[in-house]
Design a protein around this nucleic acid. Structure first.
Lengths: 184, 184
DNA sequence: ACCTGAACACCGTTCAAGT
DNA sequence: ACCTGAACACCGTTCAAGT
């Protein structure tokens, strides 16, 4: 009967797993505690609040975004950010809803800025691109869920199909602007 | 002691008011019921669920967006959509989180498409713009709240300042693309 | 038609106390 | 240092019953 011990890292891992299984609305501290075979109050030794835990989860989600590199084309970096958000169920909402206090989000913005050429004058554009990707990914995951529970009109097509075209249209617009300003 | 009666419309109005007062995290069916001097269960005669009520609120938030008009410049329409989302506390999150099942969201997309010229080939771009505005507004409201409770670094400036520049950078990118395709 | 009352199965969080 | 046990103040939702 050796009692299991957890550190922040392992709790974050298990939270991500549970998130993928049940989705954000059903991700409760009590349910996570049950999953870890621990009392709910035990979690509060490691994290100050649910918010702080979700913030750490958000940082982890964005950790797979590659390091900034000004030779990576914008479309590639943007796709990497999007895919990081889509890798876990409700990932975009987790990042979006804990964003304000996040430091880890800078990682994504830095990568996008590097892909734009790294000029400080493009910082606003990089932020705008990140905001577009976040909105896009959250809406897509919303629709995927609505589609999976059949809460949507029967004529509704698979949401991922059109999403790709919208994503491309969005990123291309930013590419164009960046290309105009820095003609190669 | 005449008992007050409510219809969906008046409940939606009061919900919007309560949302503005307490924010989405504290907007509960029980609290709303107390506000209306009614039992919580009474709300379920008018609305199937909290989700459905919030969906109706989301539709109402977007109702102030002007009717589609292809003579309205994109920046003007985009600003109208953004301002509708910012008009109530956590408005962007309410719209974003109930979007999938919404019909009312088409209103905003239609207005944006009209401002792009109304060509069907620009539908993806119009959707992308809407996604950008949603992401932008939600992030901004997040930051505004974090700023107001002082949950953010002391060196952090007022979030609305930079937001305007980011918003402009985003919409301009889409303007440019539309301009390239339909030269006047 | 519209609402009350009571219940069911949950929440996040705190805090003394244990080991 | 790390966790338990018990409590506090809440949730969304259902449903019989009232008017």
């Amino acid at each position: 009967m050796t009692s299991v011990r957890y550190d922040r890292q392992s709790i974050i891992d298990r939270t991500l797993g549970l998130l993928d299984d049940v989705g954000l609305p059903d991700l409760s501290m009590r349910r996570l505690a049950t999953e870890l075979d621990v009392q709910p109050s035990a979690l509060y030794w490691h994290f100050e609040s649910k918010q702080e835990l979700l913030g750490a989860v958000a940082d982890r989600i964005l950790l797979t975004v590659p390091d900034p590199d000004d030779r990576t084309p914008l479309m590639r970096t943007a796709t990497a950010v999007r895919d990081a958000l889509l890798a876990y169920r409700d990932g975009a909402e987790v990042v979006l809803s804990t964003y304000a206090l996040r430091l880890g989000a800078r990682r994504a913005q830095d990568a996008l800025l590097a892909s734009l050429g790294g000029e400080p004058e493009d910082a606003d554009a990089a932020d705008a691109i990140f905001e577009f990707i976040l909105g896009h990914a959250m809406l897509l995951q919303q629709r995927m869920h609505a589609h999976s529970i059949g809460a949507v009109a029967a004529d509704a097509a698979d949401p991922t199909a059109q999403a790709e075209a919208i994503f491309t249209a969005g990123i291309r617009a930013f590419e164009a602007v960046s290309g105009l300003r820095h003609p190669s």
